[in-house]
Computed example of a mutant assay.
Amino acid sequence: MAEGSTDGAGPRTGRPSGPVTRESVLSAALTIIDRDGIDALSMRRLAEAVGRDPMVIYRHLPNKAAVLDGVAELVFDQLSVDSGDPDWTAQLREVARAFRALALAHPKVVPLLVTRPLSTPLGMRPPAAVRPLEAVLRLLTEAGFSGADALHVYRALFGFLYGHVLNELQEIVERPDESDEVLRLGLHRLPIGEFPLVRELAPILADYDGGAELERGLDILITGLTATLPEPTH
């Protein structure tokens, strides 16, 4: 056979010729989204990324919605919860920090992490998206909370985390090189007689620290939960 000829397996693409799996397709999709965003992902571009005809992709994932769900699953699968940790508050803090780290590592995937699971009935979500719920419920019920209270804690924690990472990733400073905080944030565009407290807090708003904000929010959340929930039974 002449050099560079094909053996009937398909056209020469210069891309890997190994087997295509669901995992390899989702990994390629994650790479595209990480680099160019969700809107840049298409089934054709995904097929090009793995060096195959689009019909090969459809054998593993029937449509773009399934790909997006799979990408969210791929990232959620990296979030681990130690349900055997005897210190439930410390473990919730570790989970929160790990979730923020994933969000910062994949900022363009965050909208999927927040919205895709919520758009699907619980029993139809990918297992990786449900495992954090199961693990946190086990952590808290093992600590002595009732199932209902454990679910309340989970919802409060992840509601806070979703809001936090969206807020942190969308913090925009209009003029990063400007020393005046009002100008840095573009607050000079607001009516002068309005929003006095926002203007007063301009130095703090301009000096946003996502890690510190997360810890402060966790302090408030966990303090509030421990003050209002019944004591664990053991």
Rank of each mutant, 00 (worst) to 15 (best):
residue 40 A to L: 13
residue 10 G to D: 02
residue 109 V to E: 06
residue 184 R to D: 05
residue 46 L to R: 05
residue 233 T to E: 06
residue 171 E to W: 09
residue 19 P to T: 08
residue 207 D to H: 03
residue 148 A to R: 13
residue 181 E to N: 12
residue 58 Y to I: 11
residue 22 R to G: 04
residue 208 Y to A: 02
residue 51 G to F: 06
residue 121 P to L: 01
residue 172 I to R: 08
residue 154 Y to N: 15
residue 81 V to W: 00
residue 230 P to G: 12
residue 197 L to Q: 03
residue 171 E to F: 09
residue 222 I to V: 15
residue 183 L to V: 15
residue 193 G to C: 08
residue 54 P to S: 13
residue 161 L to M: 07
residue 175 R to I: 02
residue 138 R to S: 15
residue 85 D to Q: 15
residue 137 L to Y: 02
residue 149 D to S: 11
residue 215 E to F: 08
residue 81 V to L: 00
residue 129 A to R: 01
residue 150 A to T: 05
residue 106 H to P: 15
residue 115 T to M: 07
residue 56 V to P: 00
residue 28 A to G: 09
residue 230 P to R: 08
residue 58 Y to C: 01
residue 5 S to H: 07
residue 134 E to R: 14
residue 206 A to K: 06
residue 6 T to W: 00
residue 173 V to D: 13
residue 201 L to S: 01
residue 192 I to A: 07
residue 231 E to M: 11
residue 170 Q to M: 02
residue 16 P to S: 12
residue 31 T to I: 10
residue 44 R to A: 15
residue 23 E to A: 14
residue 174 E to V: 01
residue 188 H to P: 15
residue 29 A to N: 10
residue 44 R to Y: 07
residue 76 F to T: 14
residue 216 R to N: 10
residue 49 A to M: 11
residue 161 L to K: 07
residue 99 F to H: 07
residue 51 G to P: 04
residue 227 A to C: 05
residue 106 H to V: 06
residue 29 A to E: 03
residue 59 R to V: 10
residue 193 G to R: 00
residue 97 R to K: 03
residue 120 T to I: 15
residue 69 D to R: 00
residue 92 L to V: 07
residue 63 N to W: 08
residue 111 P to T: 03
residue 129 A to G: 04
residue 26 L to H: 07
residue 24 S to H: 12
residue 94 E to H: 14
residue 50 V to S: 11
residue 145 F to S: 02
residue 167 N to P: 06
residue 182 V to P: 15
residue 65 A to D: 14
residue 75 V to C: 04
residue 75 V to K: 04
residue 4 G to H: 05
residue 91 Q to G: 03
residue 24 S to I: 14
residue 53 D to F: 03
residue 117 P to R: 01
residue 40 A to E: 14
residue 54 P to T: 15
residue 226 T to E: 13
residue 55 M to C: 04
residue 70 G to K: 09
residue 110 V to F: 00
residue 24 S to N: 13
residue 50 V to C: 07
residue 107 P to K: 07
residue 207 D to R: 02
residue 162 Y to E: 00
residue 216 R to E: 08
residue 5 S to Q: 09
residue 12 R to M: 02
residue 225 L to W: 05
residue 113 L to S: 09
residue 133 L to N: 10
residue 177 D to Q: 05
residue 69 D to C: 04
residue 120 T to R: 11
residue 223 T to G: 10
residue 26 L to M: 10
residue 82 D to K: 11
residue 57 I to L: 13
residue 42 S to I: 03
residue 65 A to M: 13
residue 159 G to H: 01
residue 231 E to P: 15
residue 155 R to S: 09
residue 99 F to T: 01
residue 92 L to D: 09
residue 86 P to H: 03
residue 117 P to W: 01
residue 90 A to V: 14
residue 180 D to R: 06
residue 27 S to R: 13
residue 109 V to T: 14
residue 65 A to K: 15
residue 98 A to K: 09
residue 109 V to H: 10
residue 229 L to D: 08
residue 58 Y to G: 01
residue 59 R to S: 04
residue 128 A to Y: 06
residue 224 G to S: 12
